[in-house]
Design a protein around this nucleic acid. Structure first.
Length: 801
RNA sequence: GCCCGGGUGGUGGAAUGGUAGACACGCAGGACUUAAAAUCCUGUCUCAGCAAUGGGGUGAGGGUUCGAGUCCCUCCUCGGGCACCA
């Protein structure tokens, strides 16, 4: 037998074996075994290639898939590439290398890296979102949304870099600075495509049947931001229009002493009096010029301007001035609020600054709480005062009563509001899926016919920005010029492309259809394979990808394309791997590549080292100091299995059974780190001892999901047939785990004073007697024993006075 | 400001309310070797002690309990998310 395990030889050999046997490939039609859709968030083919963060996520995901396979599931584990997007395009602008070329090169390299991992990816199901046979269906999805009123076009402000004279995606305008030139980003109105995700806000708050981290659910709930309140109409004095406001505190209506409109509110122009016109115009101009940085500055002083107009408070007829201030947001609620300075922090600050009246209408409900007035707004619920017939009513009740009271006059109604905004999917960018819409002089806006998909992205194009804020596709006459699908007349194509999040919000529906010729939305197949049983990826996608994907999936469900109402039944986030405490990124120059470690130690050692670092969901800071420990373990395990010890001490069967139990429970909980410790303990225990062939095979099956190549090599040498992954997961006998003798800890007044070894079935009285007789314990029993506690099999605690 | 999640040896970390520090890394000593590497053995929270043993100890302070790293309250601190959302 070989003294050393040659990882590089073995890993190459077994990868070839798996490939030859197509062991990674899933028969998607199979119905003899329960299906298990095991998915990881597919990578972006960046210039950094795969880094150890990918490995940290993908390797355990593969271990999980292999484990489920051994547990008897028909596991489907696909992989692909999220290939459209800005980095490739920006790189192209800088270097002139076509994004298609960069993407192709990166994918080829990453594919090699992924293969070196030796994971059971079903490569036959691979998708690349930038390829026409994929984005054809991205466009198809768009058309389904379009035809069902879930996509619309409207003019909206977008990020604009005044220096580059170009539109920026949100991702390019982070922290209000332009990605390329660091100028401050401003807003510019452009006609854009939106997806009506808001329509699904309520449905997206339903997580029934989902096994998701609480944290992710909370993040999404927070993002969707449901709130219950009322809409109230205020008449404008001397003008035949009403202003509707949204409030969650209609109970404070009697305290409304002024009203505020967002600077973008449509009524401003009409209600502003002549003498205030100039100051109002100036104010609006100023806020429009303000950069995102200025607008979101912390503790920014409130500013505003009076319109000269007045509204009538619907409950008491009070005349209240109408102001404009940019602390009111146009996109939330109605873009107008009633201001109650006594009971709202922001209104309070504004009222103080502009010397507007503050009227107290809520007082604390009991005497133990004191109102914060007049120093600060009192924002808690309480009971109403100074509110005529509603005086004395508790806030919660008053909200219903006042709404109902005004509802009778048609002036108010209950209203649920969401913070979630519609999803802007237009990008004036080249490297994305073209939006399948054409504009015809006669017919207007027309959808491309499904049979004419894909609308191909032209390859020979000048993708440098022209400074007009338009998509580079505009420069391609060949692309722009087309015929109207309806009338056949001359038409022009939409030149915006789709946000890459559109491509990635449905890719999990593409994989299960991969074995069907060109039918990516076969209901039968999708209903068989969806939802994804396990979805593994980073928590940074909580409010973007994971929300978009749920939305698209629900829409497709409602349109009858898939039975499941949710895409991801179980979601697990791996922790983040940092380098010297910082997120790995090219700009920081701290990206660690897995390649050298894989080459030096092999895939098994590297993946186990990552898993051994700590709990999977925790992540950690990368350093390679401990990797030798795993290498030693692999060698030790190898030797323990290869050794033919004769006439030596036999390993206790209980140890094998205990290890099976521990490893099974740990992998079930995705505690790969402790599963590995348990196997280390087994290797330590087994060294130099006699193991039966059966015991060796059990141990080999246990390590298989964690160190697949090593396991195959050992399997072939301990009498195993075929692949160890065609074997079932080992089981244990609970009866074998119980030791005949157990150690009991003995405490006196909660302090450990000794341990005793007792037969496992010894009764309470006998255990207590033995405990008291223990030499060291005796010393502490001078006083009266007032209480005796015995936790069977664990501990004795004697309480002495 | 609001909502989450952490804080345990020199390091990564382990511990259904029941012997804190498993399993590793590192370090120290030893065996093997001419030597080194590899491997193996022993020790390794801290203080006192040759030892047996005892005191202290899981960010800080209180509390519940026979018993708290674990549960409750207050605070400190680090990480993540959201943030003028009426």
């Amino acid at each position: 037998m070989l003294k050393h395990y040659d990882h590089s030889k073995a890993e190459t050999k077994w990868r070839k074996f798996w490939e030859a046997k197509k062991l990674y490939k899933t028969d998607l039609q199979d119905s003899t075994k329960p299906k298990y859709y095991n998915l990881v968030m597919f990578p972006y083919p960046s210039g950094d290639k795969l880094h150890i963060g990918h490995w940290y996520s993908y390797a355990p995901a593969d271990s999980w898939g292999r484990y489920m396979r051994m547990k008897g599931f028909n596991v489907f584990q696909p992989i692909g590439f999220d290939a459209f997007g800005l980095p490739a395009e920006n790189y192209a602008i800088k270097t002139g290398v076509h994004p298609a070329q960069t993407t192709k090169t990166n994918i080829a390299y990453m594919r090699k890296q992924l293969k070196a991992m030796g994971a059971f990816w079903d490569w036959d199901a691979e998708v690349v979102t930038a390829e026409p046979d994929y984005y054809k269906w991205t466009q198809w999805v768009f058309l389904q949304l379009y035809k069902n009123g879930l996509v619309y076009r409207k003019t909206a402000p977008v990020n604009w870099c005044p220096s580059c004279k170009t539109v920026l995606a949100n991702e390019q305008a982070q922290d209000g600075l332009c990605d390329r030139c660091d100028s401050e980003v401003t807003k510019k109105d452009l006609t854009q495509w939106f997806v009506n995700i808001k329509q699904y806000a309520q449905k997206l708050l339903d997580y029934k049947g989902l096994d998701w981290p609480e944290k992710t659910r909370l993040m999404q709930e927070n993002w969707i931001g449901r709130s219950e309140g009322s809409e109230v109409d205020f008449e404008i004095q001397g003008y035949d229009k009403k202003i509707t406001v949204y409030t969650t505190r209609i109970d404070t209506l009697y305290g409304a002493t002024y009203m505020v409109l967002a600077p973008e509110h449509e009524l401003i122009e009409k209600i502003t009096t002549i003498e205030n016109k100039k100051s109002v115009e100036n104010y609006i101009k100023k806020t429009r010029k303000a950069t995102d940085i200025e607008r979101s500055a912390e503790d920014r002083e409130k500013t505003g301007v009076f319109t000269g107009a007045y509204a009538t408070n619907p409950v008491n007829g009070a005349k209240i001035p109408i102001w404009i201030a940019d602390y009111v947001l146009v996109h939330y609620g109605t873009g107008a609020v009633m201001a109650v300075p006594a009971h709202d922090t922001r209104d309070f600050a504004f009222a103080k600054k502009y010397k507007l009246p503050i009227k107290e209408v809520i007082s604390p409900i009991n005497n133990s709480i004191k109102s914060t007035l007049p120093k600060a707004a009192f924002v808690d619920d309480g009971k109403l005062i100074n509110s005529s017939e509603f005086g004395g009513t508790p806030s919660a009740q008053a909200r219903l009563d006042i709404t109902r009271f005004l509802d009778k006059k048609g002036l108010a109604k209950l209203k649920i509001n969401y913070r979630l905004r519609d999803w802007l999917i237009s990008r004036q960018r080249y490297w994305g899926a073209p939006i399948p819409i054409v504009y015809c002089d006669k017919c207007g806006e027309v959808a491309v016919a499904e049979k004419d998909l894909p609308v191909k992205l032209p390859m020979d194009i000048d993708f440098t920005p022209k400074g007009d804020g338009k998509s580079p596709l505009n420069t391609s006459k060949k692309f722009v010029t087309t015929k109207c699908p309806t009338c056949g007349g001359p038409a022009t194509r939409e030149t915006d492309t789709m946000d890459t999040f559109v491509c990635s919000s449905w890719y999990f529906l593409r994989y299960p259809c991969s074995q069907l010729e060109g039918k990516p939305f076969e209901e039968k197949m999708l209903s068989k394979w969806l939802p994804v049983d396990m979805y593994i990826g980073g928590p940074e996608h909580a409010c973007m990808h994971l929300l978009y994907a749920r939305f698209i999936h629900k829409a497709m469900h409602d349109l009858g394309y898939v039975k499941a109402s949710e895409p991801f039944k179980r979601l697990v986030h791996q922790g983040m791997i940092t380098k010297n405490g910082a997120k790995m990124s090219k700009s920081k120059g701290n990206v660690v590549s897995p390649d050298e470690f894989v080459k030096m130690y092999g895939s098994d050692v590297f993946r186990m080292y990552l898993m051994f670092m700590g709990p999977f969901t925790q992540g950690g800071d990368w350093n390679d100091k401990g990797i030798v420990g795993i290498k030693r373990f692999v060698e030790k395990f190898w030797r323990a299995m290869m050794e033919e010890v004769k006439d030596g001490e036999k390993i206790a069967p209980a140890i094998i059974h205990k290890t099976v139990k521990k490893v099974t429970e740990d992998i079930d909980a995705m505690h790969f780190n402790t599963a590995i410790s348990a196997l280390m303990a087994l290797a330590n225990e087994a060294s130099g001892k006699v193991l039966s062939k059966d015991q060796k095979q059990v141990a080999t099956r246990l390590i298989a999901p964690l160190a697949p190549h090593l396991a195959e090599e050992i399997w072939s040498k301990v009498g195993g047939k075929g692949s160890v992954f065609e074997e079932s997961w080992p089981t244990y006998d609970s009866a074998q785990i119980v030791d005949d003798e157990i150690t009991i800890a003995i405490q006196v007044n909660g302090r450990l004073r000794g341990t005793i070894l007792i037969p496992k079935d010894l009764g309470k009285e006998a255990v207590l007697a033995r405990a008291k007789a223990e030499e060291n314990v005796k010393k502490y029993l001078a006083g009266q024993v007032v209480k005796e506690i015995y936790v069977p099999g664990k501990i004795v605690n004697l309480v002495v006075k």
